[in-house]
């Protein structure tokens, strides 16, 4: 079964994602900030990462930068899951790291998250 890492500092949002994806039968790992997220990713090598952008200790952008510089991490699919409505600067920063999707949480249903995870994993094969 695919392994998913969720990196999200807001506990209720993280819990909702963990519960929903566990229910879908995935193996789920979680991290409460960017630093923990990066360490878990490099250690456990998940199949996909759901990543928030604005987080304490290390931002999602930094996590992506460090992952993309790693031999394993440069290929792991990342779904950016944020509440920042993007402006040009954020989009330019984010697209550099080639995330599979950039999703805005407030306009997203949990079912959509599951669908995007499935689509990304299928594409990865």
């Amino acid at each position: 079964m695919s392994k998913i890492l969720i990196v999200e500092d807001e506990t209720p949002l993280r819990t909702a994602l963990v519960d929903t994806l566990l229910n879908e039968g995935y193996e789920v790992l979680e991290a409460k900030d960017g630093q923990e997220g990066l360490a878990t990713a490099l250690n456990d090598k998940p199949d996909i990462i759901l990543l928030d952008l604005l987080m304490p200790k290390m931002s999602g952008l930094e996590v992506m930068e460090k992952l993309r510089a790693d031999g394993w991490g440069k290929k792991v699919p990342i779904i950016v899951l944020t509440n920042r409505v993007p402006d040009d600067k954020i989009m330019a920063d984010v697209t550099k790291y080639e995330p599979a999707f950039y999703l805005v949480k407030a306009t997203l249903n949990l079912d959509d998250v599951v669908a995007k995870v499935k689509a990304t994993l299928e594409k990865k094969g």
Partner: peptide, 26 residues
């Protein structure tokens, strides 16, 4: 306006998602 909308969106996402979890009957 950007900051306020971002700050509002986090609690709104929580309400939205937890309502959906209750309705999903999981």
């Amino acid at each position: 306006v950007s900051l306020v909308s971002h700050q509002l969106n986090t609690p709104l996402s929580i309400i939205n998602w937890y309502s959906q979890m209750l309705l999903s009957s999981r």
